[in-house]
Design a protein around this nucleic acid. Structure first.
Lengths: 171, 171
DNA sequence: AACACTGTTCACAAGTTCGTGAAAGATGCG
DNA sequence: CGCATCTTTCACGAACTTGTGAACAGTGTT
């Protein structure tokens, strides 16, 4: 059965690479993307930096920067067991993906801000100015709507979970 | 007044660079970002490749790839005036930013798809599998909600426009 | 039919990003 | 107090990206 475990690890790493690619397209750097994908898909609920390095087969140095970023952005929470010399990284399960969208919202805020500056400098009473103003309005609209959507997620999540537990043991 | 026109051009290019930076953070490549920012902020409603090259002060070669990308993604529409030897690039004004979000939705679709593959390969009946399943659900939820949001934009846009024309001449 | 003008393709140089290995820095243990 | 273990920092090499200049191709004009 050792070969089976190896196969599973290979399958896991294959998925990690694929999913990391998707995360990169969404804006993450390569190594943070891999680490996040690995921490999501593997079964542990907390990882040391060494776990991640060995699990992914990359150098500890590469992990260091990646986890710093992931903690800063809010995907990971850093923990420390007393009498232990390594930090533990835990997926911030509850609102992991809400944070993901929150980052997008920050980006939208930046859009609005930059365009406002542009309009102030260039004037709104020209074709270009009107296009900028409309772009601004769209970004502001989108930002507000996204906030609503995020707020609705916990309820939807519970609804889905309820549906699953209902179907599985009863049906 | 020639100095004034120069100043305006400098201010415009300054804005273009700033805004392009924001667009790059949202995933666009540098040159497409500049071209899009320039086409939005300047006053013409259609541009030849030469216009864009001269306006931005970059080589025609750089424009070529940028407009091809922008047309492909749907930001620009290519037009041709009969008896003319250059294509005209027009901002696809109406649903310019809806397209922008549609691209995001495609990206979300890809998320769902990749995770489904992962779950199929790795199994859902483990901690990692459950995390993947929840991630999948969130992405699917977000995708559906985004579609709603886009659908609401035209109405909101009209509402905003009505508010403005009401306030300006009447008030 | 040759020309003038516009846009595209290609190879290259400059700059940037990425991950590694080696060295240094913490921190608990004997 | 020194050791062992784990992590972080740093400099480097490889790979990739970006924009340019030059040659090429297409198209209307003379």
């Amino acid at each position: 059965m050792t070969a089976g475990a190896d196969d599973e690890r290979i399958a896991l790493l294959r998925f990690v690479e694929r999913f990391a690619l998707t995360l990169r397209e969404a804006g993450l750097a390569p190594m943070p993307a891999r680490v996040l994908a690995y921490a999501l898909a593997d079964d542990a609920d907390r990882y040391t930096a060494g776990d991640l390095a060995r699990g992914l087969g990359v150098s500890p140095a590469a992990i260091s920067g990646a986890v710093r970023y992931l903690v800063q952005v809010g995907f990971f929470v850093r923990e420390r067991e007393p009498g232990t010399r390594s930090d533990l990284y835990v997926l911030d399960d509850e609102d992991l993906w809400s944070r993901f969208v929150s980052a997008e919202m920050t980006s939208l805020d930046r859009f609005v801000q930059e365009i406002d500056r542009g309009i102030a400098a260039l004037g709104v009473d020209r074709p270009g100015g009107r296009r900028l103003a409309e772009t601004r309005d769209f970004m502001a609209f989108l930002r507000a709507e996204m906030a609503d959507v995020i707020a609705r997620w916990p309820a939807e999540r519970n609804r889905l979970a309820a549906g699953r537990t209902e179907a599985a043991p009863a049906g």
